[in-house]
Design a protein around this nucleic acid. Sequence first.
DNA 1: GAACTAATTAGGCCTTTTCCTAATTAGTTC
DNA 2: GAACTAATTAGGAAAAGGCCTAATTAGTTC
Lengths: 100, 100
Amino acid sequence: MNSLFKALSHPVRRRIIEMLRTRPLTSGDIAAAFDMAWPTVTGHLNTLKDAGLVEVEREGASMRYRLNISAVEEALAFLMDLARAGEPASDALTSKEKPS
Amino acid sequence: MNSLFKALSHPVRRRIIEMLRTRPLTSGDIAAAFDMAWPTVTGHLNTLKDAGLVEVEREGASMRYRLNISAVEEALAFLMDLARAGEPASDALTSKEKPS
DNA sequence: GAACTAATTAGGCCTTTTCCTAATTAGTTC
DNA sequence: GAACTAATTAGGAAAAGGCCTAATTAGTTC
């Protein structure tokens, strides 16, 4: 959960996942979209991968990155619960064990 | 938007906003919940305030912090849009100007 | 107003993050 | 397999983040 929000905390990384929203892209496609060195983009992609936000697959000489929606939904669940301020917290997010 | 996700990227700060979900609390209440120096907690509260996630109000000698839901909803909107992968992006988040 | 409570700002140290260039690995093509 | 394309890992400098103690501000109480 922490690496997830950490990964979302950088504008370049958020932009990358926005780019992946509609379709998978290669490292090259992504690197070309930013005014920074390619290894820097690779670093951001690794951060996203470690957080589970993207998945990678080799495709010939290229690497194809795709968005992993379920990781997005995890972050979403945290914020949704917050947005219901005042109501009781959802079990899924706060309880440590089953009710007796 | 960036300061918003930055603020959400630290576990202590996420815990603080969880604590504020049900009701406003004073600095003292919040600081007491963590095993760290009070000024460190103040620092986190300032980060949350700068991001618009909390609002502060003096109450006698104390400061009362409350969650600002609309900031949470802003982050929520970003993630919701992502979660609809494949579909066209929402105008609210991507368009720079009105359609002709 | 002196003493006490609540909380903040200031300053410094250490760690992590971010970015770069250079070197390396993996795959394709002739 | 040499040359080329695609992308990564390595190493290091600069900036940002997180935490602490000490000092300060703001408010209350006697």
